Structure formats: structure tokens, C-alpha cells
Computed example of a mutant assay.
Amino acid sequence: MCDTAQATAADASLSTPRQVQGSAVDPIALTPVDEVRVTILMDNTFDALLVGDGHTTRAGFGAADVPAGQFETDRTAVGLLAEHGFSALVAVRRGDSTTTLMFDAGLSPSGIVTNADRLGMRLDDLQGIVLSHGHFDHAGGLSGLSSKLGAMRMPMTVHPHAWTRRRLRGPQGIFDMPTLSKRALTAEGFEVIERSQPSLLVDGAVLITGEVDRTTEFEHGMPAAHEALAAGDWRHDPQVIDDQALVVNLKNQGLVILTGCGHAGVINIVRHAQRLTSVPRLHALLGGFHLSGPAFEPIIPPTVAALADYAPQLVAPGHCTGWRAQHALAAALPEAWVPSSSGTTHQLVRA
């Protein structure tokens, strides 16, 4: 979510660096894992012609299994869906034990379940859901997931501010974003767990960051057009305070970090994960980097420079990263950068 509106000095002051509210455990003993598989269930793009490599598997068009009367067989192949949303399945293996979580749920009710079906993935193997933040393009598929799985008690980790009512005030008018309903999610069978501080899942092998420290000088959050309803008034909401990331410590390799939109700033997120875990090495950074549009393009150079200093082995930006940032990241990190696409699986293994 972004636009070209200019913030005032008062708006800018709201997004200056701050520390997370409340106590934090520092460091957190994050149990190293043997393997992490991240499958991009939904992203803004789908490219059936992308080629995989040693640690990346791509989805193609698949079998011709969709009815289409204009073809001689009355069938066609359609590949996967893409939409302005993000969702990933994260499978973490420790020895012979594997646990799969869903990180975000895409935009549309049918999107992630359709792609899972076409990929042949069983969503009833899920053992939990994490929402990176409350924006509707990361939670829209929850109703479709509930309909597919039926009655369940699926644990879902969210920040308490995920229920915040938000809108965009732009030159063409006001867009009221669909707002998540805790009541509706609970009625659908999700066991909602609200946490603003760091959470350890999967027997201590997966860290959910909670609120992220804002410590860089250049990541200032959302522009003035992004507003939230607070105490009956609409106010500039630069921080998207509910933004959180998923972190895994891959044995002998370093941190694997998955972001939804990275509203806290991806460098802030990396720093925060390093501080929480005392693991200095960044192995992989995947997800939305939110560097798209005139409001964010000025911070592309310092973001890319800071990320290059970490020398990650894999950088797979998608969703809201934007084409200018993609080009810059590909140029600065040619061995690490991998284009994202719905249906891509990244398999990362311990050294």
C-alpha cells in the first residue's frame, strides 16, 4: 500500500526511530533447524517459464485439466494464480520432524486454496498460521482456507493491532481497506493468539518477531495517505505497528527471514532479528520489501547497500517490492537475487 502523498514535518516525527514498547527477551535461544522449505503460495506474479536451480523449484503450467471448449480435448492448462497479495508455506525440519506453518493468506478468498490444489499441496497438514500484519491483501484467503478445511482449531498468531481500521487517502478519493474481524475468525474455527512481543513456535525453532525496533535513519514507514482510526479520529499511520516477520535459524548457515510487506523496513527487521537471536549472519531474506512507488523509491539505494553488506546467500523479494528495487537488488546481489513467482519453492539446507 503506497502513494505519492508528501508527509509534513509532524507526520515525519511519528516515524522516527523508536524502541519496541514493553519488555523483550534478549537474546532468544532460537533452536537451529536442519532444513527450511518456503513455498510461495501466492504472489503478485506467476511466470511459468522461470527456471529453477539447486535450491529453487518452479511451478509450470501443469496438466491440461481445466475445462475449455475451444480446445480439441476440451481442456487447457492454466498454471497458478497471481494477485496483489502474499502467502507462503514454511516447512521447518528438525531431524525427522517437520512442521508446516502458513505465513499470510493472500488477497482473495479462493486464491491460496486454488494454488494449493494445483500444486498438489495438502493444507490439512498445516499446524498454524502467522499473519505479518492486518492489511487485507495478506488475510483475504482465510475464509477460503476455513471453507476447505472445515471445523478446526487452527492456532493463528497475530499482533493486537491487526484489527485496526485503516484507509488510503489519495488524489482519486478515499479507499477504506477491509478490516479483519477477530469475531469472524474465531467463529470460523481459528484460535487467535494476540502477541505484540516476540513469540517462539515449533518447539523454539520459529521466531515471530512481534513489534520491530525502528533503528535505521532512512526507513520511515508509510506516507501521509495511509491513515488509521484511533480514538475516533483518522490519523497518519506511518508505522503499521503490527508488522512482524518470521525467523528461522538454519544450522551453520544463519538466519532465514520471511517478511509480508516489511512495513517496519527490511533492514530494521534484519537488525531486530539479529538482536533478538544473537545470530549475526543473514542467510536468506524473502517476501515483500515495500519499496514500490515514489514514496519509497528514494530509500532503495540505502536499503540495497545495507542488504549487500550482509552478503546473504538468497534474496527473493516479491509482492510490494517494486520493479525499480528488483532491478537494483539484482544488480547489487547477482548471485543471491532470485525472482519471485507464485508456486516457487526455496529449499534451504544446513551446511
Rank of each mutant, 00 (worst) to 15 (best):
E194K: 09
L333K: 11
Q19D: 13
H138R: 12
A10I: 07
M102R: 14
I174A: 03
R281Y: 01
R93T: 15
T76A: 00
V349G: 01
K148S: 13
R271P: 00
T321V: 08
E335D: 15
S342V: 02
I208F: 08
F190A: 01
N115L: 09
D233C: 00
L30R: 06
P171A: 13
A305L: 10
A230I: 15
L185S: 02
L286H: 10
L291M: 10
R214M: 06
Q70P: 01
R271K: 14
V192D: 04
M156D: 06
A12N: 13
A7V: 05
W337M: 09
I241V: 15
Q6V: 10
L50I: 05
S108H: 14
I269R: 08
R169S: 12
G128S: 05
R235G: 03
V266P: 01
V33T: 11
E83A: 11
C320F: 11
C320I: 14
F296T: 07
V51H: 08
E211S: 12
Y310P: 01
D47G: 00
G265C: 02
V256F: 03
G265L: 03
A331F: 11
G262K: 12
L246G: 03
A205S: 15
V266C: 04
T215H: 04
L14C: 06
A306L: 06
H55C: 09
E72L: 13
E297T: 15
T98P: 00
L246I: 07
E227A: 10
A162D: 15
L107D: 01
S110Y: 09
R94N: 04
R275V: 06
F46Y: 15
K251G: 00
T39V: 09
H272G: 01
E72H: 06
P67A: 01
M1W: 09
T179D: 02
V315Y: 10
G111L: 08
A88V: 10
L314I: 15
D65L: 01
M177Q: 08
V38S: 00
S292V: 12
V256R: 07
A295T: 12
P27A: 02
G141S: 13
L145D: 02
G232Y: 07
P32C: 02
R195C: 12
C2W: 12
H138F: 13
V202F: 06
G134F: 09
H346V: 04
Q172S: 12
Q313R: 12
D124E: 14
G52L: 05
G62F: 14
L81A: 11
R195P: 04
R75P: 00
G54Q: 13
V202H: 11
A162F: 08
A116R: 12
L285Q: 05
